[in-house]
Design a protein around this nucleic acid. Sequence first.
RNA 1: GCGGGCGUAGCUCAGCUGGUUAGAGCGCCUGCCUGUCACGCAGGAGGUCGCGGGUUCAAGUCCCGUCGCUCGCGCCA
Length: 611
Amino acid sequence: MHAYRTHKCAELRKDQAGQTVKLSGWIHRKRDHGGVLFIDLRDTTGITQCVVDQDSPLLTEIEKCRVESVITITGRVKTRQEGTVNRDLATGEIEVYIDDLTIQSQADVLPLQVADADAAGEDVRLKYRFLDLRRDAMHNRIRLRNNIIRSMRQRMWDQGFQEFNTPILTASSPEGARDYLVPSRLHPGKFYALPQAPQQFKQLLMVSGFDRYFQIAPCFRDEDGRADRLAEFYQLDMEMSFVKQEDIFATMTPVIDGVFKEFADWTGTPHRVEWLPNMAYNDAILKYGSDKPDMRNPLAICDVTDVFKREDVTFNAFKGIIEKGGVVRAIRCPQVAGQPRSFFDKLNDWARGEGAPGLGYILFEGAEGKGPIAKFVPTAAQEELKKIAGLKDGDAIFFVCDMEGKAAKLAGRARDKICDDLPTGHACAREKGVYKFMWIVDFPMYEFDEKSGKIDFSHNPFSMPQGGLEALNGPDPLKVMATQYDCVCNGFELASGGIRNHKPEIMERAFAIAGYSRDVLEKKFGGMLDAFRFGAPPHGGCAFGIDRIVMILANEPNLREVYAFVMNGAYEDPMMGAPTDPTPQQLKDLHLKVVLPAKVESVEKKAQKSA
RNA sequence: GCGGGCGUAGCUCAGCUGGUUAGAGCGCCUGCCUGUCACGCAGGAGGUCGCGGGUUCAAGUCCCGUCGCUCGCGCCA
C-alpha cells in the first residue's frame, strides 16, 4: 500500500464498500460525540467523512489534533446507514472507519478559519495566504485561472501561434508607466528594467519572420495600485505579420469569445456573450464619456452646448464656461418623474464630491420642465433639448459643463452613477447576465499635454499613424489617428493593441512631432530602428489582461482574489516581508547608496499645510 | 501627493445623544454526549477599544494629531 494514500478525498463511493483504503489530507472539521468522533478529511478534490469509535485506541490521539492538522488514515470503507447519508457530499454515501492513524503535521491554533466561509480582513489573509488559499473558494478561483490560461493557450496554438519567452531583465520600454529597475552588479551605475510589456521583443520576433507570436507574459509597472491594477500582472500577448487591423480582430475575437463562452456560467449565473460593432474613440468619449464604456448601461450622452449658447437661455454659470471654450454635455435619463427629490439631490451631492459645482437637471413632467435650472431655460430652448436628446414626458436630462475633456469624463462618470442609482427593475438599470464586448478603434496618435504645454504620444508610440507620413506632415498632428485599438468588456479595458509602424522614416517623423530628436530615438530604440532597416514585415497585435479576464469571469471585484500570491494595495507582501532592506554587502556589490526621503522636511510641510 | 471609509478578543462584528464591571457569533481551553455533517450542552480563558495628546467630574464614544488597512483621485493602457 502506498505510504500516503490509495484514494483522493472525493473518490470513494458505495462500490468501494468493504475495501481497506488509505487517505491523506487536512482535518477540515471534527464532530466529537463522546462515543463517536467524526472527522471531515479534506484534500483539493473534496471531503470524506471518517469515523472513530469509542473503543478505538486512536480516539485520544486523534482528539489532540486540531483542525487543519495533516493526517494519514487507514480504514475500512462502509456504506452509511439509511438516514445518515449526506447528499451534499460526493462521498456522502460512505464513510471510512479509521484503523490506523499517522499524524503528519500538527496544526497550531489558526489565525483565520479555513472551513468557515466568513472572510478575514485582507491584511490577515495575505499574511497567512497559505491558509487563505486552502479555502474552497480560493482553490476554485485558482483552478479557474489555470483553466482559462489553458484554454487561451490551446486556442492560440490551434491558430498556428508559437509561444515564446522574452527577457525579464531588459531595457526600459516605451510605455508611459514608471519602470521597475534592477541594479547591475557588473555594470556599476546601470540598471535593467523589468518589462512593462514585451512590446519591442514581440515586434522583433516579427522582423525575425516568426509570423505568429504569443506569450502568457509577465508585465511590471511601478504605478500606484487599484482594485483592478497590480504592480505585476499577466497578459495574453500576441503579434502577427502581414495583417491589417481587421485581421487582428478576426483572430482574437474568436479566442476571447470562446474563452468567455467556455467559462461564462462558472459563477453559477448564466451569462451571454455579445459583441457590439466597433466604436470610434471619439464617439465613445462623446456618447459615453469614456474610452472603455460599460455598454450594459443604456444611458447615453449628447452635446447640448448650442442650446445653452442661445440668447433666450440665461443660465450664466454655463454661459461663462462656454465663452471660455467649454461645452455642455447632457445625459438623458428616461422615466424618472416618479423618483423622489432625494434621487436628484443625491446625484447633485455626488457631483460635488467629484469636484463639480453640482449636477444640474431638468425634469420633463407635464407641459413644462421642472428643476432648479429649468427657469433659466425657456420653453423654446426646452423644446430644442427634447429634440436633441430625444426626451419624452417623464424623462430627465442631466447637465455637465466644463472644458471638453473634463466635461466628457465627468459626464461619463455621471452616466454610470445615474445608472447605478436607478431602482432595480428600471428600464435603464444596468443589464445583468451579459458580457458586452466592443473594439474601440481610431485612437488619436497624439494629445496635447496641458502641463508640459507640448504634444505627446497619447498611447503607443510604435503605432502606425493612419494616413502614414502624409498625415503626419499635415497641418494638425492632433487630428492624426493611430492604428490603435482597445478591446472593452463591461467597462473594463481588457486589451490594447495596434498595427505597428515598421517604417523608420515614418517613425522618425512621428517621434519628431512629439519632440524627440533623431539622436534620442536612435539612442533609445536603436535596436528596433535597426531592425526595421533590414526588412521588416508590416505587423500588429495586442495584449489581453489575463487577470482582469479571470476577475470578470469569477465575478470578483478585486484582482487579488484571482492570484495565488499577491501583494497588498501598497505593494507590500505581508507574508514574505517584501520589499526588504538590503544588507550592506548587497548594496556594496551593486555600487548603491540609499538616500532616504527627508522626513523632517515632510513633517514641516504638513505643519505648514495644516496651519 | 490628495480625498472617502474602516481600526473594539485569535477572526468577523455590535456598542445610541459621553455614564457602573466593554458585549455577541466563530475559534481556543475543560467537562459531558454513539450518528453528526456549520453537531449539541455546560463552564472557562482571552481586551493597551491602533497609537499620542486634548476637552470633561467621567471618553471605545467628542476634538486634534499620527500610524495601519481599504476604496478612489492623481499617476497608469
